[in-house]
């Protein structure tokens, strides 16, 4: 039950981020949508790792079931890489603003001719 709810929430957040990237007109809002999409996939990975009745994967003698530690490692990598990609996207946005003087992609398309 928890796993299915998390799947639906992760895909809904992904679709919300995708909608933002596709339809919004401001470059910074597009970067916000990109960051939301990356976080949703991390949630999907962690939801795959969840086991019923499992506890955090730090060893302790009394615990019997743990959640899966391998998707946690992948999720950690995904978070850091997502931050790097968002940083590069923001650098590109600042560069575009320096060159065109605006952050509105309609105006940028128009000025490209």
């Amino acid at each position: 039950m928890i796993r299915e709810m998390s799947f639906v929430a992760a895909i809904s957040v992904f679709c919300i981020g995708l909608y933002c990237v596709l339809t919004d007109r401001n470059l910074i809002k597009i970067c916000v949508g990109l960051s939301i999409m990356e976080s949703s996939i991390v949630l999907l990975l962690v939801a795959i790792a969840y086991r019923e009745g499992g506890l955090a994967p730090v060893f302790s003698a009394e615990i019997e079931t743990y959640v899966d530690p391998v998707p946690h490692a992948l999720a950690l990598t995904a978070i850091v890489i997502g931050a790097g990609v968002t940083a590069v996207a923001l650098g590109l946005s600042v560069l575009i603003y320096r060159h065109f003087g605006t952050l509105n992609i309609d105006k940028i398309w128009r000025s490209l001719g």
């Binding site: 928890i2 991390v42 962690v46 969840y50 499992g54 955090a56 959640v67 946690h72 999720a75 978070i79």
Partner: peptide, 11 residues
């Protein structure tokens, strides 16, 4: 809530 403590700290 999903018992992913490392990922929660990183996020």
């Amino acid at each position: 809530f999903l018992q992913a403590v490392d990922v929660a700290m990183a996020e």
